[in-house]
Nucleic acid binder design. Structure first.
Lengths: 212, 212, 212, 212
DNA sequence: AATGAATGAGCATTCATTCAT
DNA sequence: AATGAATGAATGCTCATTCAT
């Protein structure tokens, strides 16, 4: 590492650049959560940050790039095994059920953060052709991860057999309102995670409820 | 009923008017499903129907009216006890579990129809003040219905106790991709309904899976 | 004259046609007075008459024709020597002053009638090229009449000498709000005519007022 | 004052901004004079200025704002006692007659300027609710000023008694074609002012003319 | 004689984006 | 590094007008 004048006290250009970039992403993420993807306008981001519109363009090529990077950040965080390893799901030694529960808890946690709140909420129709393909060619790593988990769970007997793609999308859907519940209705992520795990892993019906 | 020349073979003006109106609604609903609410443009609807933009305005006062009618149609269909009574959920004599299952099956069925596919996908921010209030003053009848069902189920012992608002939103979320699964991935509504009921009522974990 | 079945009791086709035409013109004139020329919409006329828009087109080629005819009717009435001869101004045997007074009283009277209220209120910019030229080639008969009157008055010593075109337009301008005063503020045409004649013929200043 | 590079020779940004804003207002005012208020289209303004439509929106929030500012500028100029004090009418020490004459001369002068030509020509229906109320709550200061003048003149004996509201509207009307006379027919404002004062203060009829 | 249906042209407005500075 | 200025493209909507019936 090169020594720096003033040590760590003063940010250098690259650091400032990166911080400003992140400020844009954070602001955009908050507005997406609050008003939805299509309602996001570059002008509003600029206003919120108190800079001009072209300034945003200094840091990002276009609106798409902002969206893409937010998604990428969220996905990267999800896939980063060193981030909150206690709910990192991609561990072969765990049963499918255990991994699925980790997936759910990890999602709830990340969806309760600013950038992360966009993790799953993005309608893919929003992205333009190229971006979408980029995400889908890789098969959206999370898709494959979870579908693998469900399959493994069926194989190892910890999960019931089910139609994998359909079940996967139902699970993803059930996460839709987590950001709303957390940010707008003040639910703690802990409570939300427990509720969700109960709902999806154990179901709602009581043994008695079976008969009716 | 007055007899008509040509019997039923030829549509009269009112019928044609109504059919064209419905064609607009259907086209709009399909575009909403495919591209999202905000991406819906009157020009695109007109193009798709191969008419001019003002023609659409001949049948609807404005864009809002189209959205409102689609939503109203979907909600009305849902609430119409005579439509597919076998999955109508608002029957007090049934247990909460049975009613919840009916709710799920009914939603899946309706979300698999053209207009109905918009039943739950509408971000309420899309509607203007008046329309939104109109929907929310009634408390969005479906919200109240389902929250009531969950509460009743807990009371009658057929459903596990749970946080009602959070669970409700998770259930609604889980329906999010039903239209996609049905229309784009060709799932039958029967299969989807079964999968969903299994997932939400019985859960995914096997008894064995518990231990891990 | 051909004898008619049913005598005069029943209107024949031509009479009905003409009556309906006049109803359109009257309705249009009222709306022009109330909302101004440019705000006049064929749809509103049709609504007011409780007929459809194309029906209006059955009686008039286009919007221009309606405007043109209203103006023509008003001008014709003004120029018709048999209509209220007591204020008909185009009588060579009268002094210029007398004729000018008649002009003012006649204008006030006509501007207090439904069709006539449009006599002078029409901004000529409203008419399209052709119509305007048609009106202006003839030099707008009223223009010429009044300018002649003012000139004659100067010659015969009954009116002060003045710049004729400018004075003419100031006089015409002073009539601008007569319809408003009559219809909206309930002034009688008699009072308005007296006020106007006093103002324009005698002026506002008192002999005393001269000194200040 | 800070000194500027290049002195006064080169406009800085704020000056250019303000000049462009005024160019829009001036262009709009000219088009209003020539074609009337309702015919004013933002596209035409843009074309005339050889810029694009959104550019106009860079300088004004919307069409209303343009209209409002034109009116406000004209009214403000009229009410500014330091602007051409020789015809400023609101001076209590003057007789009503003197003040009325000043009012007329001031109007003629202002109506002969580009922006000022809209001073009295505005149909108030053009403005939206808020703007209109803003203008009318203050009672349209000019209305009140002139009505007060006429009343004062009657009281101090310099003006003949008359119906104030009617006379006021006739006076305002008589100003209607001043812009036309000045801009299209090349009348000097001096001549127009004299003609108008003669007409309204002294009247047209000669003493001789009385008898006829 | 009258109308339902349809449309071309136009308008106010917004937004992502670019360019010169 | 940042911004003022500018714009192309699109959007919702209105209106005069036409055509087939």
């Amino acid at each position: 590492m090169a020594r720096r004048a003033w040590g760590e006290a003063v940010q250098n250009r690259e650091e400032q650049f990166e911080l400003k970039r992140q400020a844009v992403l954070r602001t955009a993420a908050v507005m997406i959560r609050k008003r939805g993807f299509e309602r996001l306008s570059l002008g509003d981001i600029a206003d919120e940050l108190q800079v001009s519109k072209p300034t945003v363009y200094y840091y990002f090529r276009n609106k798409e790039e902002i969206l893409r990077e937010i998604l990428q950040l969220a996905v990267d965080q999800f896939l980063d095994a060193t981030d909150h390893p206690e709910d990192f799901p991609d561990l072969p030694q765990l049963s499918g059920a255990a991994r699925l529960e980790r997936f759910l808890r990890r999602c709830v946690r990340i969806l309760g953060e600013e950038i992360g709140s966009c993790l799953l909420s993005t309608p893919r129709e929003v992205l333009d052709e190229d971006t979408r393909r980029q995400f889908e060619e890789k098969g959206h790593p999370i898709d494959e991860l979870v579908e693998g988990i469900i399959r493994d769970g069926a194989r190892d007997g910890s999960l019931k057999p089910c139609d994998v793609p359909a079940t996967y999308l139902m699970i993803v859907g059930s996460l839709r309102f987590i950001p709303t519940l957390h940010f707008d209705q003040q639910y703690s992520t802990a409570l939300l995670a427990d509720s969700l795990v109960n709902l999806l892993m154990i179901g709602l019906r009581t043994p008695t409820g079976n008969k009716s």
